[in-house]
């Protein structure tokens, strides 16, 4: 039963997403695509933040590095995007590993500030290295993804591709989380010293978590680039890192389902709350604060609490 959790997650995503892809109108499909792409990044972020407890405020830089690598390879060098995707993931993961060694000696707010600085630096470099990145004009003309004659060039088709990738990512993440590797990450999050005392190489676990999170971020970035077919610096500034963080917290950190739910919810929320106008972001901040204070385990945690409460009542009535 237990080992089917990952399969269950994948099937749920495919079924629900597939159903929505048939009934939703084009604009909603676009938002759903954005949700799917964000969800992959947030599942990645969950490795670093939710499992290993690394407070990163620079996740968007990894997304951006993936997106820009694909954009540059597929435009300036004329690579097939299919080839550029794995290379972009590899480049980003290597970068994460490289900066991880010095960076992950830092903890708590020091790590938060360092990763924030990293994200800001990324934006500055991408904005100013005009010969490579096009500066604030960004890079346009990114080729579409296609399989033979079948191009993923409308929202519905792209969504199918995105859903398959998201389902694979979610299944992988669920499997990992329930494995020794996931437990090792959570052990490091909960108590580094005690983790060492069970033979865990804390540095290696942290770097693995960061690299995994960067790899997922890069995949999300390449999908972003091939979906919008345009990248610009402001898509990956640190405000986006905070949005990824918020998605995970609203959904429920430490849980794959939380990552997916949070990503979808925070993508659609501005739509549903359009009547708030300019006040949306102020509301968003208040909502985040309220969730931190009253619902620190997010929506997934709330569901678990309700279930427990329900179970409790049942137990009381049967006894």
């Amino acid at each position: 039963m237990r080992r089917y959790h990952s399969l269950l997650a994948a099937v749920a995503i495919l079924a629900l997403g597939g159903l929505l892809s048939l009934v939703l109108a084009d604009y909603r499909l676009r938002l759903l695509n954005v949700s799917v792409i964000s969800a992959i990044a947030v599942i990645g972020f969950n490795f670093a933040f939710g499992l290993a407890g690394l407070i990163s405020l620079g996740h968007a830089a990894f997304v951006g590095l993936g997106a820009y690598t694909l954009a540059i390879l597929s435009t300036a060098f004329g690579w097939s995007p299919w080839l550029a995707i794995p290379v972009a993931i590899l480049v980003t993961t290597l970068f994460a590993g490289l900066i991880g060694y010095p960076l992950l000696r830092l903890r708590g707010h020091y790590l938060a500030l360092a990763t924030l600085g990293l994200n800001v630096s990324f934006t500055i470099v991408v904005t100013n290295w005009i010969s490579l990145t096009g500066g604030t004009n960004g890079i346009s003309g990114i080729p579409e993804l296609r399989l033979g004659a079948f191009a993923f060039n409308d929202e519905r088709r792209f969504l199918w591709l995105g859903l398959v990738l998201l389902a694979l990512c979610a299944a992988f993440a669920v499997t990992l989380q329930r494995s020794r590797y996931g437990r090792a990450m959570m052990a490091v999050r909960d108590d580094e010293t005690a983790a060492r005392m069970t033979g865990i190489d804390v540095t290696r676990v942290k770097i693995t978590a960061l690299c995994l999170s960067a790899a997922f971020a890069a995949l999300s970035g390449t999908l972003f680039a091939t979906h919008v077919r345009f990248v610009a610096p402001e898509d990956f500034n640190y405000a986006h890192s905070i949005i990824y963080l918020a998605m995970l917290i609203v959904g429920g950190e430490g849980a794959v389902a939380g990552a997916v739910i949070g990503a979808a919810l925070l993508t659609f929320l501005p739509e549903w709350l359009r009547f708030l106008g300019d006040a949306y972001l102020a509301f968003f901040g208040l909502m985040l604060l309220a969730i931190l204070i009253f619902l620190p385990t997010g929506l997934v945690g709330l569901a678990a609490q309700l279930r427990r409460l329900g179970g409790h009542r049942e137990a009381e009535t049967t006894s």
Binding site: I55, I242, L245, A246, G285, L289, L292
Partner: peptide, 16 residues
């Protein structure tokens, strides 16, 4: 962690 993110959230509220 929660406090850090809490102040980030408040910052968003203040700015907007």
């Amino acid at each position: 962690v929660t406090v850090i993110i809490g102040t980030v959230a408040v910052g968003i509220v203040m700015q907007n």
